[in-house]
Write a protein that binds this DNA or RNA. Structure first.
Length: 489
RNA sequence: GGCCCCUUGGAGAAGCGGCUGAACUCACCAGCCUUUCACGCUGGCAUUCAGGGGUUCGAAUCCCCUAGGGGUCACCA
């Protein structure tokens, strides 16, 4: 039997890292087993669901490179893939439950239920539905229906039964049926509830493995009961632990700052995000850290997924992203950086310049959103001399150094090639240092620091032979003049 | 409150009864390299696996209890 898995989000918010990781595990599992991955939408919460979020989730998945074989947008043999469009199917299966005597109408009001719950809690009991409407006679039901009351439909949970299932990740899990309580499968508006609709979807779509977040573990006995009542064969379950935010709390959809979209917008590489998520709660046998999608697919194994919840560590993501930035092709990086530069209206540079900049700064880049800040450092014609850069500019020997440097710099032969210019500068700097040492007894820090300070207005930054090609000679000269003025030398 | 799940360093983790004197990665700290910052390199960072009992010649690994965290008990999913 071919493996078939699914991701079934409710489109009530953006996809966050935790949800995306659940998808990843599904996707990897499908790919590993040459299976099928389905994307559908659980939009029965009409109040909060919206197509906007459905699109957002699909976009996030596409961005991460997790394609789905069947479902939303791509269609397939088991559609429709939106629960609100599957109402007929749910009703069909409902009639089977009626026939088997597994369901009943319930007319209890929210107020009554609330009161029951409070009383049960006060008694220290499990606050499950009392079963008040379970034994209504057909005549009583008819009477209430005639009166225009809109009932919900509840599932009759068998008494005194142990509900056991094997969880791929957690092992055997068991529940007592009396702790479950008759649950609602159709709301009074005729819309099915989650616990019922998922089961019907999973049955009709032929899902073989349900890999989902641990918060659904306690829902599983209800779903198991429905499978049994319908006489359908059970899929395998695997409940993955949740991802907690930095403060140790569960990620929620309201927290947009953990969304996949945010990382896309900040210029993280999807491959890095995928790699990072894979390692959150899973590790390959050989403990490799940097893994491509192909590597992950080859190595993925559900049995190595951790049971305990993981905390999202942004620092490690940054490190991971940096690893990918270092290994990326400069053209790809440049393409990714352009929108960020445009967003800040940064212009006046060539493609080659950008690529050279990226080559120079990539080692310290966590994400592409940082590129404009680096670019700005080199694009301004003058700089504000920072306090810490003032002393080197005011050293006694600085004017001499700067004069000599400028003379040599302006005498440099023309070139449009950044690497060539870099080499020229390297030679120039070395020679300058050597000459000034023998001629004036000035060397090392005494020559490099003033040049750096005048050029950049700070005492730290890239190597000068990288900085200068980026600046260009004209700008370098302008900056030195301006900085000298600011320092009064 | 009942029920279910989880518990190895600041974070991700390896570990599956003796090869662990608890790998590895991020972060952090120190030193080296260096004209500066960063990179890089080297070293440090759990006398111990939430705590306590047990089983065993031997336990982070198996069992029990306690504590802590999370989830759920919705006409949300």
């Amino acid at each position: 039997m071919t493996v078939k898995v699914r991701f079934a989000p409710s489109p009530t918010g953006p996809l966050h890292i935790g949800g995306a990781r659940t998808v990843l595990f599904n996707w990897l599992f499908a790919k590993r087993n040459n299976g099928v991955f389905v994307l559908r939408s659980e939009d029965t919460d009409i109040e909060r669901s919206s197509e906007k979020w459905e699109r957002d989730i699909a976009d996030s998945l596409r961005w991460l490179g997790m394609d789905w074989d069947e479902g939303l947008e791509v269609g397939g043999p088991n559609g429709p893939y939106r629960q609100t469009e599957r109402l007929e199917i749910y009703k069909e299966y409902l009639s089977r439950l009626w026939l088997g005597g597994h369901v009943y109408y319930c007319f209890c009001t929210p107020e009554e239920l609330e009161q029951d719950r409070e009383e049960a809690m006060a008694r220290g009991d499990n606050p499950v539905y009392s079963g008040r409407c379970r034994n209504l006679t057909p005549a009583q039901v008819e009477e209430k229906l005639q009166a225009g009351l809109k009932p919900v439909i509840r599932f009759k949970v068998p008494k005194e039964t142990e509900i056991v299932f094997d969880d791929i990740i957690r092992g055997q899990v068991s529940f007592q049926s009396q702790d479950v309580g008759d649950f609602i499968i159709f709301k009074s508006d005729g819309i099915p509830t989650y616990n019922y609709a998922v089961v019907i979807d999973d049955i009709t779509m032929g899902i073989t493995h349900i890999i989902r977040a641990n918060e659904h573990l306690v829902n599983t006995p209800r779903q198991v009961l429905i499978y049994q009542a319908l006489g359908e064969s059970m899929p395998e379950f695997g409940h993955v632990s949740v991802v907690l935010d930095t403060s140790g709390r569960k990620m929620s959809k309201r927290m947009g700052d953990m969304s996949v979209g945010k990382y896309a917008r900040q210029g993280y590489l999807p491959e890095a995000v995928v790699n990072f998520m894979a390692l959150l709660g899973w590790s390959p046998e050989d403990n490799t850290e940097i893994m491509s999608k192909e590597d992950l697919i080859k190595a993925f194994d559900l049995s190595r997924v951790s049971k305990s919840p993981g905390i999202f560590d942004a620092q490690k993501l940054d490190w991971m992203n940096n690893q990918y930035i270092r290994a990326s092709d400069l053209d790809i990086l440049a393409d990714m950086a352009v929108p960020f530069l445009k967003a800040q209206s940064l212009t006046g540079f060539s493609r080659e310049w950008l690529k050279y900049l990226l080559a120079v700064v990539r080692d310290e880049l966590h994400c592409l959103a940082q590129v404009p800040d680096f670019a700005k450092e080199f694009l301004a014609d003058t700089v504000q001399v920072q306090p810490e850069a003032l002393p080197p500019l005011q050293w006694e020997t600085t004017p001499l150094v700067l004069n000599e440097f400028m003379a040599r710099l302006t005498a440099l032969p023309n070139t449009a090639d950044f690497t060539e210019r870099q080499q020229q500068i390297q030679v120039l700097l070395k020679q300058l240092n050597k000459d000034m040492k023998s001629r004036d007894g000035i060397s090392g820090k005494a020559v490099y620091m003033p040049v750096r300070a005048a050029l950049t207005g700070t005492v730290s930054g890239q190597e000068l032979h990288y900085t200068l090609p980026l600046l260009g000679i004209e700008r370098a000269v302008a900056r030195i003049k301006s900085s000298r003025q600011q320092a009064g030398i």
